[in-house]
Simulated assay, not measured.
Amino acid sequence: MTVSRSMLAGLAFATLGLAACQQEAAPPADKAAAPETAAPGASGGGVLRDEVIPEAPPAPSAIQTQPGPDGTRFALLKAAVTGDILTVTVNCTSEKNKWVYLKFDEISVIDDTTSQRIGVLRDNADAWMGSPLNGKDRIGLDCSPNGVIWVKFPAPPATSPTVSINLPGVAPFDGVTVAR
């Protein structure tokens, strides 16, 4: 195959044109830096560069904190009703390697208005509604450095604004306002 000089010249011209377009499309190095904004009250001269540092999400704050077995601490993070279910979330901390086991049939909520004891819910397969499971009848929780459990209960009536939460071996969380 023979290539003419005019074909080579046309190919070279197209290649140079394409390279020029690609160079124009790339921003200059100093423009690719952080976004620039004019300083408030500045009159055209200076430019400030704002660095945006994303904030870390806030750590959940404890509603109450109680001592637990073997130097552990339990922090109640949530007691909220959704529909007809009360969900309780608790954080356990320990400076030493500590595991805590809580039997579901010993975990309860007391309706402060009626003094009625409310046990942990079970699902349609008769499994306890809580986590992390350790076997079929208890929660097993590594508290070092921390661990979180959740348990679900039938919701107390709306006329009961507070409950007391009881975990075996942990001081009770009394007078907890239920979020609705």
Results as ranks from 00 to 15, higher is better:
Met7Glu: 12
Pro35His: 07
Pro168Cys: 05
Asp123Ser: 03
Ser131Gly: 13
Asp137Ile: 07
Ala33Asp: 13
Arg122Phe: 06
Ala62Lys: 07
Pro58Tyr: 02
Arg5Tyr: 01
Asp111Pro: 08
Ala179Thr: 15
Val90Ile: 14
Asp111Trp: 00
Pro60His: 00
Ser6Leu: 11
Gln23Thr: 07
Leu86Glu: 00
Ala25Pro: 00
Ser94Arg: 02
Ser4Cys: 06
Gly83Val: 03
Ile118Gly: 04
Leu121Glu: 00
Thr87Arg: 13
Asp105Cys: 05
Asp30His: 09
Ile53Glu: 08
Ala14Cys: 13
Leu133Ser: 08
Gly83Lys: 12
Phe74Val: 12
Ala80Lys: 14
Asn124Cys: 04
Gly46Trp: 13
Met129Thr: 08
Thr15Met: 12
Gly83Glu: 01
Thr177Gln: 13
Leu121His: 04
Leu167Gly: 05
Cys92Ile: 05
Asp137Ser: 14
Asp112Phe: 03
Glu36Ile: 13
Thr87Glu: 12
Thr72His: 02
Val170Ala: 08
Pro60Trp: 00
Thr65Cys: 01
Cys143Phe: 00
Asn91Ala: 13
Ala158Gln: 15
Ile149Phe: 07
Asn97Ser: 10
Pro54Thr: 11
Asp142Tyr: 06
Leu11Ala: 11
Ile53Thr: 15
Lys103Trp: 07
Leu141Tyr: 02
Arg122His: 11
Ala127Arg: 11
Ala29Val: 14
Phe74Glu: 06
Pro58Leu: 09
Leu121Pro: 01
Val178Leu: 08
Val52Trp: 05
Asp123Trp: 01
Asp70Cys: 04
Ile107Trp: 00
Ala79His: 02
Val52Asn: 08
Pro57Trp: 01
Phe74Asn: 03
Gly175Ser: 07
Pro60Leu: 06
Thr72Pro: 04
Gly44Tyr: 07
Leu77Lys: 09
Gln116Tyr: 00
Thr15Asn: 06
Val176Gln: 03
Ser4Tyr: 01
Thr159Gly: 01
Gly119Thr: 11
Trp128Ile: 05
Gly41Phe: 01
Ser61Phe: 01
Thr37Val: 12
Pro35Glu: 06
Thr37Gly: 10
Leu141Pro: 01
Val47Cys: 11
Ala20Asn: 08
Glu106Thr: 10
Asp137Cys: 02
Pro145Arg: 12
Ala26Asn: 11
Gly119Leu: 08
Val81Ala: 09
Gly41Val: 04
Pro54Gln: 14
Asp105Val: 01
Val47Lys: 15
Ile165Gly: 06
Ile107Asn: 04
Gly135Lys: 05
Asp123Ala: 02
